[in-house]
Nucleic acid binder design. Structure first.
Length: 562
RNA sequence: UGCCCCGUGGUGUAAUUGGCAACACGUCUGACUCUGGAUCAGAAGUCUCCAGGUUCGAGUCCUGGCGGGGCAGCCA
């Protein structure tokens, strides 16, 4: 429904696909998104998800969801559930094509037997250290293993015994015989199977040997008939290995294409680092709204559309780069501006009394729900002589460019009247301003057209008697550094922004918000976009998360002045 | 001192495949405004990492440098 970027951008991948289709190498496009269920999906994954599902969609093909679940000790059903939920929420549909690498364990085993029969794979009984030492380094070739010349019969029998559980963890591995002196380390007798007496979240105790990712991934793609196997740059050096497997096995050959993963400044993206933030309690969980995970962004108030638009705008290329979070923020503002209901909320209240209005004065004023969308209609906002306004909207000694409320000055109350500050009440001890006394101009009612008085500023407010309380959580970027991983001396956790979360209680909201549904999004006028927290909000304790602030030119002016 | 990939405004991507470098974000002006929002109009900013070469013509092709990233898990 949105017009942000309906025209899909061409990129080097679509170029390759176009060539394949033109040459007849493939006659359709089948892609897949292949997560390992060992963590939550993050914004970086959404780039890959949007790419793979988008490609399939653009070319009238299909995109599978496949869990690469080859390592039982790191994976968990909790993660597969969260991954499915997140992809669905983003708006992509794998229909009935929910696959698991573990579904192919039998086939993979047969493939391994085939390789053994061809004399291209053998059982190695070296220890982990020995294997490591014999592998060589990027600049020195490896050394042949003493086990490399075992007979086919012996290899077959031992491989079967591995499967049967006759050995202990680590006792033997199955390796492919490729090239021990290849400059590409991946070809130096890669390990295909390892013994792991571990229960798998899907296959239970059926297996005690598990295929390595390198052995499982390409063949899984092949089994599914994937045409374009899109992955990130670090697998570029693995492509010759995958191609070798496919050739030796004589099975369908997908084309792997590598692209640069998404990086964002002021955050970290690796699952390991994110897990660390969770485990060491720097954040409240995977869905802490400061996290770059999909579940966190959802909780923070991001929309799926905004994330998809963001992914589209970021583009696809082969050079690794760091995208500015400002682009993400732009994407959500753009989306929410069009659809978010406007309301008034005072986060840091100061009392304001209108002295030329009686204590029992009551009036309902008309407020537009969304100036960007007339169909959203309007609502009534209660008005009285006792209000709250934002403390920051008053300056006793105003800055020359400050055009809000100050002594003797006039300002408009949004949807209401123009008021003038007549007096200030201060706490005699602390000197802190506790109340503002103002008069209002009855002729200036919003929309009445009775007065053509102009004021420089308009501020939001809420009627004290009618206001409801809420807790508001203000979020800022999680790290103070653009590149939290950039300092080799310091751990990235040292750069966590101490002000990344600021909880304010007793914020004053207009009563319209009383029954706001968890997850619903609003614009608090002049402040930003907020949504009702889906986890912690309740009828007696409304909790709002700030998704993102509004663009704030005043903040820029202040910054410049400092 | 091995192999693979990549080098275009501040950032991310384009450039009809060899034809006078464009779009978005960001930044800065101005207009408008009952959100210092949104919107609108405009500006600055890239001689395409460097040096050679091919060509009438190179960001695109070739060679050599330089710079960045990846590769030595029984992780993915």
């Amino acid at each position: 429904m949105d017009n942000a970027n309906n025209e899909k951008q061409k990129n080097f991948i679509t170029e390759i696909i176009d060539e394949h289709l033109a040459s007849g190498k493939y006659n359709k496009v089948i892609t897949r998104f292949p997560p390992e269920p060992n963590g939550y999906l993050h914004i970086g994954h959404s780039k890959s998800i949007a790419l793979n599902f988008g490609l399939a969609d653009d070319y009238g093909g299909k995109c599978n969801l496949r869990f690469d679940d080859t390592n039982p000790s790191k994976e968990d059903i909790e993660y597969v559930d969260s991954i499915k939920r997140d992809i669905k929420w983003l708006g992509f549909d794998w229909e009935e094509r929910e696959y698991y690498a573990s579904d192919y364990f039998d086939t993979l085993y047969e493939y391994a037997v085939k390789l053994i029969n061809k004399g291209k794979a053998y059982i190695d009984s070296s220890t982990m250290d020995e294997i490591k030492n014999m592998r060589g380094t990027p600049t020195e070739p490896g050394i042949e293993s003493p086990y490399r010349s075992r007979s086919v019969a012996e290899n077959l029998e031992m491989f079967q015994n591995m499967k049967l559980g006759k050995y202990t963890d680590g006792e033997h591995v199955l390796r492919a015989k490729i090239d021990m002196s290849s400059p590409n380390m991946n070809l130096r007798y890669p390990i295909l199977y390892r013994i792991r007496h571990d229960s798998h979240h899907r296959t239970g105790s059926k297996w005690c040997i598990y295929p390595m990712y390198d052995w499982a991934h390409g063949q899984s793609d092949s089994i599914e008939g994937i045409t374009h196997s899109v992955c990130t740059l670090e697998f570029e050096n693995h492509r010759p290995l995958y191609d070798w497997f496919i050739r030796e096995l004589e099975i369908h050959h997908p084309q792997q294409i590598e692209f640069a993963r998404l990086n964002l400044n002021y955050t970290v993206m690796s699952k390991r680092k994110l897990l660390q933030l969770v485990q060491e309690k720097y954040v409240s969980g995977w869905d802490d709204p400061r996290m770059p995970t999909i579940s966190a962004l959802r909780r923070r108030g991001y929309t799926p559309e905004s994330i998809r638009n963001f992914a589209e705008r970021v583009g696809v290329a082969k050079r690794d780069s760091i995208t500015d979070v400002a682009l993400l923020e732009y994407s959500i503002r753009e989306d929410l501006n069009k659809r978010a209901q406007r309301v008034m909320a005072v986060l840091n209240p100061i009392k304001l009394t209108i002295t030329n209005l009686p204590d029992d004065y009551f009036e309902e004023l008309n407020a537009v729900n969304n100036p960007e969308d007339e169909t959203m209609g309007s609502r009534k906002v209660p008005f009285s002589n006792s209000l709250y306004i934002e403390r920051e909207d008053f300056q006793e000694v105003p800055h020359k460019k400050f055009h809000r409320l100050s002594p003797g000055n006039e300002v408009r109350l949004r949807y209401a009247y123009i008021i003038k500050c007549e007096d200030i009440i201060k706490d005699p001890k602390t000197g802190e301003i506790t109340e503002l006394l103002c008069t209002y101009d009855a002729e200036t009612k919003s929309g009445s057209g009775k007065s053509d008085k102009k004021v420089k500023g308009t501020i939001h407010w809420v009627s004290a008697k009618h206001a409801i309380n809420a807790e508001v959580r203000l979020y800022d970027r999680l790290f103070t550094e653009e590149d939290p991983l950039g300092d080799k001396e310091k751990d990235f956790t040292e750069f966590i922004n101490p002000e990344s979360l600021n909880v304010i209680r007793e914020c004053k909201l207009e009563p319209f918000l009383k029954n706001a549904e968890p997850g619903s999004r609003f614009q608090f006028e002049r402040l930003g976009y907020f949504c009702v927290d889906i986890k912690d909000s309740s009828d007696d304790n409304l909790v709002f998360n700030r998704t993102v602030t509004l663009r704030d030119t005043w903040a820029k002016i202040q910054k410049k002045n400092n």
